[in-house]
């Protein structure tokens, strides 16, 4: 079985955002042209959901792209943010913050997600180094991250119970454009997601840190030989992972005013789907994939009923993996060898 050769010349980076924007504009125009207001509303909701998925998908794609590691703790980091924020308010520890307690709570929640992500780094990735000639050894960090998934999820269950809780956010500024309702919180979260993506792209492309990360992604041993301190750079990946998952969790909490210990499960699996659709290790791919999954979800709920989502999203994913394993924007080499 021969793998297709990795394309030596990368597509110019400017091409991908243009393709995504053009595709998106076309889809929205077609949808509104044929379906009118109802479809336009569905597309808007799909985009908002897509903003959450793409942020989580970026966390996944960053860990896979740089470390070749499918990190299953990301959905729990997402959930930790929301639950910790709710817990802090519920306990009344943030009474001093007054009207902005929700913001303080969510910021602390994101901080907890980052801290938890660093704990995961300490106990999983440090042991990725292969010591044994074994085809399934690449599963070692994967299995550890599944262990952490159990630990975090059940600690939250012990501490805060299994019910879903209401997390009220004081602003509800709905904007109406041509009869389509745009939630203020949703709009803010969409903008925030785009800002994060832009910042991440800038960091990876133009900073010393970003160059080190990209070198490790190419080859950790060579990176080490060239003077990149791999053991000091790797935690940065986990900090970014925790940050992305945490911010996505905060955005989700703001959008839906609702937290539960299981809120990460569905979003996490959808984000994995989004990452694969876009191509492993590609940031723009995660964005395109997130939007695509969000749109697929809302549109299949609209046309085929609520229980069809699982089939359409995962069927689409299965088809992409089989027909075009590198996804929309991925390079063929990532994720093929070790994990």
């Amino acid at each position: 079985m021969s793998a297709p050769p990795a394309s030596p010349a990368r597509r110019p980076a400017i091409g991908q955002p243009v393709i995504i924007a053009a595709g998106l504009a076309l889809a929205v125009a077609l949808g509104i042209g044929f379906g009118g207001k109802v479809i336009a509303q569905q597309i808007v909701s799909g985009l908002m959901l897509g903003a959450i998925y793409m942020t989580v998908a970026m966390a996944f794609t960053l860990t896979i792209g740089v470390l070749n590691f499918l990190n299953f703790t990301i959905p729990t980091l997402f959930m930790l943010t929301g639950m910790v924020a709710w817990g802090l308010i519920h306990q009344g520890w943030l009474a001093f913050a007054g009207g902005s307690a929700w913001l303080v709570a969510l910021l602390i929640g994101v901080g907890v997600a980052v801290a938890a992500s660093l704990v995961v780094e300490r106990f999983t990735f440090r042991y990725l180094r292969t010591r044994h000639g074994d085809a399934t050894e690449h599963a070692i960090p994967l299995v550890s991250s599944l262990g952490f998934l159990l630990i975090f999820e059940h600690l939250v269950l012990i501490g805060m119970g299994s019910e879903s809780q209401r997390f009220a956010v004081p602003f509800k500024a709905d904007i109406r454009i041509f009869g389509v309702v745009l939630g203020g919180a949703q709009l803010a979260s969409m903008v925030l997601a785009v800002v994060i993506v832009a910042a991440l792209t800038y960091i990876l492309k133009h900073t010393r840190m970003g160059r080190a990360l990209r070198t490790i992604a190419e080859n950790p041993d060579t990176a080490s030989l060239l003077g990149v301190e791999v053991t000091r750079i790797v935690p940065v990946v986990f900090i970014l992972t925790g940050l992305l998952a945490g911010v996505a969790g905060a955005l989700f909490t703001i959008n839906y005013s609702d937290v539960s210990p299981f809120m990460g499960d569905h979003v996490g699996t959808k984000a994995i789907a989004a990452m694969v659709l876009g191509g492993l290790g590609s940031i723009w791919g995660a964005i395109a994939g997130g939007i695509l999954v969000g749109l697929t979800e809302t549109l299949s709920i609209h046309f085929l009923g609520g229980d069809s989502v699982q089939m359409t999203v995962w069927g689409l994913l299965l088809a992409v993996i089989i027909l075009r394993p590198q996804g929309l924007f991925g390079t063929a080499s990532i994720g093929k060898g070790k994990m």
Partner: peptide, 26 residues
């Protein structure tokens, strides 16, 4: 599935199970 390898195989089989469960639910 055997066209894929590594993490893609893990994800392909995972997606297969989700499609089966989704179909059975419907």
């Amino acid at each position: 599935v055997l066209r894929t390898r590594g993490v893609y195989m893990v994800l392909a089989t995972f997606a297969f199970a989700e499609v089966v469960a989704g179909y059975l639910l419907r």
